[in-house]
Design a protein around this nucleic acid. Sequence first.
RNA 1: GGAGGGAUGACCGAGUCGCCGAAGGUGAUCGCCUGCUAAGCGAUUGUGGGCCCUCAAAGUCCACCGAGGGUUCAAAUCCCUCUCCCUCCGCCA
Length: 419
Amino acid sequence: MIDVRRLRDDPEYRNGAVRKGASPEAIDALLASDDRRLAVRQEIEALRARQNAASKEIAKAPAADRPAKIAVAGELKAELSAREPLVALAENEFRELAIRIANPAHPSVPSGGADDFVVVKTVGGETPAPALDHADYGLRMGFVDGERAVRISGSRFAYLMREAVLLELALVQWVTQRLVGHGFVPVVPPVLVQEHMMEAAGFFPTDRSQVYDVDGGELFLVGTAEVPLAGIHLGEIVDGSSLPLRYAGISPCFRREAGTYGKDTRGIFRVHQFDKVEMFSYCSPERSWEEHEFLLSIEESIVADLGLPYRVIVVAAGDLGNPAAKKYDIEAWLPSEGCYREVTSCSNYTDYSARRLGTRLRGEGAGAGTQLVHTLNGTACAIGRTLLFIFEHYQQSDGSLSVPEVLQPYCGFTAVPAR
RNA sequence: GGAGGGAUGACCGAGUCGCCGAAGGUGAUCGCCUGCUAAGCGAUUGUGGGCCCUCAAAGUCCACCGAGGGUUCAAAUCCCUCUCCCUCCGCCA
């Protein structure tokens, strides 16, 4: 949820919203609506104050005077109940308008759309394509069986099998250990959540079509552990000195991938179900940008230690998700396609999600007030996606697969012979 | 799936129409006291919003006792619906 006061007073903030696609008209309409709801509320509150006072008098009055006083209070009540619905109307109008304004882009975010990203750095070279691309290689090695999965679940599902499973477990172990070392609390979260949690996390109503609902719409399968991790401190006021609170969620992720027909149909690049280790930080507003860089540095270290060539980009304003003020993507080099493709990303949602989540922090010292926390999230490792990069970069000329050194202690083998 | 019980402030826990934004306790903060520590004594200590004000504080008004409706001049308290939690039975990895 947008900060309306800041939208009114801070030109840079307002401009950031425009760069995210909000029209100046929509913003002005929101501000006008804010004025209206305030005026209505003031009127009703004044009326209610009079009614409350009248009621209190009744309690103190001697029995003989009561009937007259009750009549007076009754009139006020009638007037109040006639005008009270106006408040809800004004509030609803305001909310409708407010929900359409995305979190403003940070000044450091370039304007424009999907092609207007800025490359921050490039590490490693653009290696040549291997004999088989990740899909063919996965099939050949018996790592990925999409054909059989189609029979039982439809397209964009796959059986992950054989050593690929051990590599998955190794990745989860390795990455989780690293995060624990950085002070993240490891979490296996619920992956079915209620509608209100989807809303609070900012996925509904915008991305409703991307989410599976089960149990007759009572519960929804999360597309990322970010959702339940964002809910850990729902409605809580946390001690400011305990921040940053860092969680590492390990979970399957479910995505409908609506509107991606024909896109990335090879292998397990884009599937309806995959496992992921996700980072989530609750952070004070003062140091959330620092935290964002921290999450990026972890993501970089993971990709780099796996030996994958990659680049870091700052995603342009128009290509940011609704709640993100800034987002980095790490794109690894995919030799078979001859281009960089996203492996991980991290976003700073600033106070945008926290406002709906109701997660605040209490400052230190006596009389210190509360303020909204900032929330950030990032992919530590999207397992399937990562495996596929390994299939290409670690595929040997004899058809065998070597194992990235960092994973060897966790999977118990150093190579998989050709098949 | 069946039968009961519950949801109150950071936490525990009173409270069956007006004197309740809510006793008491814990925790926290400030001060006092004891040559340290512990204990003890006193004070303060919910959230959000409005008005006032240059700002803040103070003051004042409104809302909030799981959520949403209802009854009433007046609801934490009565009624209805929903959600969640707990206990027992059944089922079960």
